[in-house]
Amino acid sequence: MFLALALPNLALIATFTYLPLINNIYYSTLDWTLGAASATVVGLDNYVAFFTGPDAGRVLGTTAVFTVATVGGSMILGLLVALALNTKVRGTTFARSAVFAPYVLSGVGVGLVWLFIFDPGYGVLAWLLRGIGQQSPQWINDPQLSLAMVILVYVWKNLGYCAVVFLAGLQSLPKDVMEAASLDGANDVRRFISMSLPLLSPTTFFLLITTMLSSLQAFDLIRIMTPLGNGTSTLIYEAYLQAFGAYNRAGYSASVSVILFAILLIITVVQLRFVEKKVHYS
């Protein structure tokens, strides 16, 4: 019975997850132009070319800045929004739906709407700035502003997810413990810092893992808002540009993907091995 129920799922996982992963690792050892009928085995040359080339620092730095900013921004703002939504006032149900709605929207649609807002020529933000006699920043053309633009939109889209998860954690806190702290004279800030935050550590740990993995694999917003990767080339987008952009370097792109996989694996293992020790499950 166990084999009858488990084998179909295991076969699907092996076919569509592990087999492509193994093939991608093999492709990363090839000097292969996308579409070419033949390829040359070059071993680890693609990895050497990446780490010794001029793009490694830029791509890894952009990936680190994007991940830290989006994870930190989404979790901090999500927690603040969750605290606001945890109050018993009129309209909280509508507010919760409104906050969570951007998370379920298409990344392509969100990117197109915000691209229209940020466009320095005919965008809504440029129109508002011209109304007060100011010029719009070159959000799309300036690499630093492009990265900031994508980070802002990504945080806006995903903070609703963090807010809903944090809200569920806040509502599951033991009320008797919080009431006992109130009777002992602890104010709201003291209860939040000394009791709510430690009790929310399982929720925070869960969000830390899921949002970090999601940010490292963010693609749709970057593709729509900065098609050329001007200042926004994270590892996953660099792999896309190398394979399907002007280079058609399928083998080199596969090596970048393997590097991203290794980073994801290391981060997850470190979090489960060391960060989880700080989590209080009781």
Rank of each mutant, 00 (worst) to 15 (best):
P20S: 08
A82V: 12
T203R: 06
G61W: 08
A98N: 07
A254Y: 06
V68W: 05
R58K: 10
D220L: 01
A82E: 12
A180N: 09
L115W: 05
E276K: 14
L145E: 12
Q144C: 04
A69V: 01
A49W: 04
R58L: 12
E179Q: 14
M149S: 15
L80C: 10
S253M: 02
V258P: 01
G53C: 02
N248G: 05
P227G: 05
G53V: 04
A6V: 15
S255M: 13
A262E: 00
V275A: 14
D119R: 07
L260C: 12
E179M: 11
T40E: 02
I209Q: 06
R130F: 08
V164E: 05
T226G: 06
A148C: 08
K175Y: 10
N86M: 09
A186N: 05
Q217R: 15
G61A: 10
I263R: 07
F51E: 08
L5R: 00
L147W: 08
L207F: 10
I266G: 10
F206Q: 06
H280K: 13
P102W: 04
F261D: 00
N158G: 01
M149N: 11
N230Y: 10
W32R: 00
S201R: 06
L115Y: 08
L147G: 09
L159F: 13
S97T: 11
F51L: 15
A36H: 04
G169C: 13
L12S: 13
S182D: 13
T15G: 12
S74R: 02
P54V: 03
N187S: 11
P202F: 07
Q242A: 14
P198T: 11
T204F: 10
Y247F: 03
A37W: 00
L105W: 11
L173K: 05
S38C: 00
G91C: 02
L129R: 04
L208Y: 07
Y237W: 00
L128Y: 11
A64M: 14
M75K: 12
G43N: 08
V110E: 07
F51W: 12
D142F: 05
T203L: 02
V99T: 13
A37V: 01
L10A: 06
A49C: 03
Q171D: 09
I25A: 15
R130G: 15
I267D: 02
V99N: 06
V155E: 05
A250S: 15
F2Y: 11
A69G: 07
Y154V: 01
N9D: 01
G53Y: 02
Y103F: 06
V59M: 07
F94V: 15
V59A: 05
N230Q: 12
G109T: 03
Y26P: 04
N187H: 09
T63G: 09
F166D: 02
G185Y: 10
V279F: 07
F261G: 13
G43V: 10
A37H: 00
Y237P: 01
L200Y: 05
I22S: 10
S282D: 14
A218V: 08
S282R: 12
L105Q: 12
I209C: 00
A243K: 08
